[in-house]
Simulated scan of single mutants.
Amino acid sequence: MRKIKTGIVGLGRLGKVHATNVVNYVSQLDLIAACSVVEEELQYASLNLGVEKTYESFEEMIDQADIEAVIIVSPSSLHTKQIEYAFKKGKHVFCEKPIGLEVKEIEQVEEFIEKRKDQVFMLGFMRRFDESYQYAKEMVDRGDIGEITLVRCYGIDPSSGLPSFVQFAKNSHSGGLFIDMAIHDIDLVRWFTGQEIKEVYAIGNNFAYPELAEYGDTETGAALMKLSNDAIAILVSGRNAAHGYHVETEIIGTKGMLRVAQEPEKNLVTIFDEKGVRRPCSEHFPERFKQAFINELIEFAKCIIERQVPGVSAKDGLESTKVALACTKSFETGKLVALEDEAK
């Protein structure tokens, strides 16, 4: 079996998830190089994952390491430049969302990618590779629930991670709630409906950590959206779920409705004790979407080997980012934002 020599840039929480998955679960990829500006992360790659070559410079890794593909899990502001550099050097690229933070930069890199049909680019919208979401998508595509009239999404991180996130936002690493978190739900809305989003109105608040407002972010946000065919989407994103990581998606159609993960159960175990009867919940996104993260990298490798075009494209990243930025603008201004106006 052919193994694709692969490098990775970024070994924070999600970077470690991807790197560990490659080493343990994705046999088609061979992780031989890693890049990070944090020495401890490079040591982790060498000692825990057996990575042969480590680099502090992304450009040096691309130029010097004998790799065919690279997995980009660096800060979002670096994505477009790193994608373009890797593509210029003939590498296949898997990039975590978002594809970038500026529309013009994303448009430029999308055009750059489109000119190189022999190279694979794939964006990390992992929920598309979750079995439950794929099952729901098959039902929608068959017309089982008729024409979609409304999509409602919840995406709320556990409150246990909120204090560390406040420090993260303080250091200006966050792209904001809508682009960091809601973008997954925005992608689901586009994926399930096949429609673009034309108007958004977003609001938010900070009750647990009011200082988040000083850093231009919010701990709880909501957005009401009108789609190109006048269907409706409602998104709720947050960072303060006391019970664990909460992701839920409801799709209402003219003939029925679907609900994915109404309760964010960790497994099929029910606990009976002095606290009553309860079901454990997933504590964080790497746990809830563990198999989805593995599945997307298997798909990435398959597309390289079989010369296929991934189902998740740079355009998906561009359109979702446009909507997320429009939500951010609506939140900041308190006004309805039309996507057509933003494009002018």
Rank of each mutant, 00 (worst) to 15 (best):
L212V: 02
L212F: 06
A213C: 00
A213T: 07
A213V: 00
A213D: 10
A213M: 01
A213Q: 05
E214S: 10
E214K: 13
E214N: 12
E214C: 00
Y215L: 02
Y215T: 05
Y215F: 15
Y215K: 03
G216A: 01
D217Y: 03
D217W: 02
T218M: 02
T218N: 05
E219F: 08
E219A: 04
E219V: 03
T220Y: 11
T220A: 04
T220L: 14
T220C: 07
T220K: 10
G221D: 06
G221R: 07
G221N: 06
G221C: 01
L224C: 04
L224P: 00
M225S: 00
M225D: 01
K226I: 12
K226M: 09
K226T: 15
K226V: 10
L227F: 03
L227T: 03
S228R: 03
N229G: 00
N229V: 01
D230Y: 11
D230G: 02
A231H: 07
A233F: 09
A233R: 11
A233E: 09
A233T: 08
I234E: 13
I234Q: 14
L235K: 04
L235Q: 03
L235F: 05
L235H: 06
V236S: 12
V236Q: 15
S237K: 07
S237P: 01
S237V: 13
G238R: 12
G238V: 09
R239C: 05
R239W: 11
R239P: 09
R239Y: 10
N240W: 04
A241H: 12
A242P: 08
A242S: 09
A242H: 10
H243C: 05
H243P: 05
G244P: 08
Y245A: 02
H246M: 03
H246Q: 06
H246K: 08
V247E: 09
V247L: 08
E250Q: 15
I251E: 12
I252N: 12
I252W: 13
G253V: 10
G253Q: 11
T254E: 14
T254L: 10
K255W: 12
K255D: 15
